[in-house]
Design a protein around this nucleic acid. Structure first.
Lengths: 194, 194, 194, 194
DNA sequence: CATGAATGAGTGTTCATTCAT
DNA sequence: GATGAATGAACACTCATTCAT
C-alpha cells in the first residue's frame, strides 16, 4: 500500500510537470528529460506510468478536463431551476478558469492544437454532459434559445477562456463587478427573449 | 528576369506550406524538411527567406493576421454608423473564419500556444485598431456597453473562433439562418440595453 | 557493475579517436560522427561525456598536455643539479615527442591554431612550471643565461617539435648520436658561456 | 589591360581575406561566403580565380611562402661570406616574422596542420634553397656544424616562429638587444666550435 | 567577367525511447 | 519498481559549389 501511494505521487508529479512545462514552452519545446527532471524521477521511470509521450499528454489532458468539469458541477444539482443551475455552473467555471489558470490554459492549448489524440478529446468532452442536459431542459421549458449546444457554448462559456487568457497576459483585470457583467452577457446571449 | 530577385512566389509557397503543415500536425511535428518539400524548394532555400524556424512561423503569423484584418475591414468606412459598421465588420470576420478556415485555424493555434514571439503577437494585434475605434465611438454615443474592449471582443467576436473550430470538426453545420442568429447574439451581447 | 557509472573507457576511446582523426584530417575534417564511429559509440553518447565538440577538443588537449608534462618530469627531482635536471627533462621530452609522436603532433596542431579555447591553453601551460622553476634556479646560480623563459624554451625545447615533425614526414631520421648532438645544441644555447 | 589589373586586385583581395580569416578563426571556421564578403565579391566569383576551397588555401600558402622567402633573401648575395650571409638572412627572417606577423602566423598554422596539400607544401619548401646552399658551403668551409639541414633549421630559424607566437600572444616583448641575444643563440647553435 | 539565388550533402546536436543493472 | 547510461533516428541549420542571367 505504501508503494502504491508512492506511485500515485510520482504519476501526479509527472502530470503536474507536464502541465507546467507545456504551458510555458509549448509541446514542441518540452522534452521528456525536462519533465523527468522537474518531477524528480529518471526519464525511464516515465515509461512505467505512461506508454509514451503522446500517452502522457493525452492522460494529462483527460485528468485536467475531469478536474475542470468536476469543479464546474460540484455544487450543481439537477433539481435546480434552469436559470439557477446555469448561474451556478457558469460561476464555478469562471472560478476555475481564473483560479486554476494554469490548468485552464493547458486545456486551451490542447483544444486548439493537434497535440491531443481525437479519442482523448472525445473522452474529455463526455464529462460536460450535465450542462448539455441542462440546456436541453431549458429549451423544452422555453427558457433557453433553441440553438445548437455548440452555439450556446460559444456565446456563454467560451468567452471565459478568452477573458482568462487576457488576464493572464496582463491586458485585462477582472474584478467582481466586471465578472457580474460578464455573467449577464452570457445569460442574455442564451436566454429566450421575452 | 524572373531569377534576378528572391522570388516572392517562393516565400509565399513557404508560408502556405507552413500553415498547412502546422495546422495538420502542430508546430512540434512540422520539420523544416517537410515544409521545404511541400513548397518544392531545398531546405537550404528556406534560410534565404527566413532567419530560422521561429522567424518563419512569426512571419507566417503576421502575414495571416494582416490578411485577416484586411479582409475584416475591406468594406468598412469610418463614416458608417456604429451599428452598421459593426455588422459589416462582424460579417466579414465570420466570412473569413468560415471560408478561409485554414488560416483562421492557424491563428487560433498561434494565439493559444507559446509558439509565437511576444513581439510578433503585438505586431499582429495592431491591425485590429479600427474595430477598437468603432467601439470607443459606440461607447461615446451610448450605443455600446461601457465595457473593456477585451470583454466586447470576448462576447462578440471570439465565439466565431469556437464556431469555426466546431464546424471544422464536423460537429456543427452553420447555415445562413444560424449565422444570422449568431450575429444577433453577438450584437445583443455588446449593444446598450434600452 | 561495469555499467553503473559512465565508463572511463568510453571517454578515453573518444579522446583517442579525436587525437587520431584530428591528426590525420585536421579539426575541420573531423566530424563527430566519425569520432563516434572510431570510438564505437553512438554520436549521442559523446554528449554524455562532453558538452560539445569544442569541449571535447579542449579536454583532449588538456589531457594530452598533462600526459606530456607528467612524462617530462617523471624522473625529475628538485634536488638535482641544474645541469643534470635539465638533461633529464630534455631527454624525457625528446623521448615523448619521438615515441608518442601522435600525441606530440596533436599538441603542435593545437598550439598553432585557434582551435583551442584560450582558457584551456592557459590550463595546459600551468603544468610546465617545474621547468621554469629549474631555469630560475639556474639563472640565480649563474649557470643559465639570464634570458626570458620563453626565449630559453624557444631555443632549447621547441626545436624538438620541428625535429619530430620532420621525422614524421620522413625527411629526417634521428639516431642516438644525432639526438646527442641535438641535446648539446640545446644545452649550449641556454647555458652561460664561460 | 585594365580588366586584367582589376582581376589581380580581386585575386589579391581573396588571398588577403583568406589569411585574415584563417588566422583569426581557423580553417574550420572560415566559410567561403565569409571570404567572399570580406573581399567584397560574390561567392561565385571565387571560383573564377580558384578551383575550390582547397586550391584557394594552397595558393594562398604558396603566395605567402614565396613572399617570406623573397623577403628573406632580398639583400642576400652568394658572394657574401657564410657568416655574413647567415646573419643577413636570419635578420631578414626575424624582421619578416615580427613585422609581417599575420603572414608568419598563417604559415605556422599551415605547417602544423593537414590543411595544405603535400604537393603545395613541397612547392613552398623549394624557395628556401639559397639558405640550404649557404649551409652546405659553410659545412665545406668548416664553419657550420656538419649536421642535417633540418637540424640546423630547427635550432637557428625555427625558434623565431615560437618567439613570434609568444609576442603575438603578449607574453613576451622583443626589443633590439633581446633580438641580438636571439641571433647569438642561433649562430652559436650551428657554428663550428673552435 | 560577375553575380545572387539555389541547392544537396552533410554538420553538430537533441530527443524519445530502451536496456542492463 | 526504479534508474542512469546508451542509442538510432531525426532535427535545425550550414556550407562548398553551381547555375541562370
Amino acid at each position: 500500500m505504501a508503494k502504491l501511494q508512492k506511485s500515485i505521487d510520482k504519476r501526479n508529479a509527472l502530470v503536474k510537470a507536464t502541465i507546467e512545462l507545456v504551458n510555458n514552452n509549448g509541446f514542441h519545446a518540452t522534452p521528456m528529460s525536462k519533465i523527468a527532471k522537474m518531477a524528480k524521477v529518471s526519464p525511464a521511470t516515465i515509461y512505467l506510468y505512461f506508454e509514451n509521450k503522446q500517452d502522457l499528454v493525452n492522460q494529462t489532458y483527460i485528468d485536467v478536463k475531469a478536474e475542470y468539469t468536476n469543479y464546474a458541477f460540484a455544487n450543481y444539482d439537477e433539481s435546480m431551476s434552469v436559470e439557477a443551475g446555469f448561474e451556478m455552473i457558469w460561476k464555478r467555471i469562471a472560478d476555475f478558469k481564473l483560479k486554476e489558470c494554469e490548468h485552464a490554459m493547458f486545456l486551451a492549448q490542447c483544444d486548439n492544437t493537434p497535440m491531443i489524440d481525437e479519442e482523448s478529446r472525445q473522452e474529455g468532452i463526455k464529462h460536460l454532459q450535465p450542462l448539455l442536459d441542462l440546456w436541453e431542459r431549458g429549451k423544452k421549458e422555453g427558457i433557453i434559445k433553441p440553438m445548437a449546444n455548440y452555439m450556446l457554448y460559444a456565446y456563454s462559456i467560451n468567452p471565459l477562456s478568452f477573458l482568462m487568457m487576457s488576464e493572464k497576459r496582463g491586458v485585462l483585470k477582472l474584478d467582481a463587478s466586471q465578472l457580474e457583467d460578464a455573467y449577464q452577457s452570457a445569460w442574455s446571449s442564451i436566454k429566450m427573449c421575452k
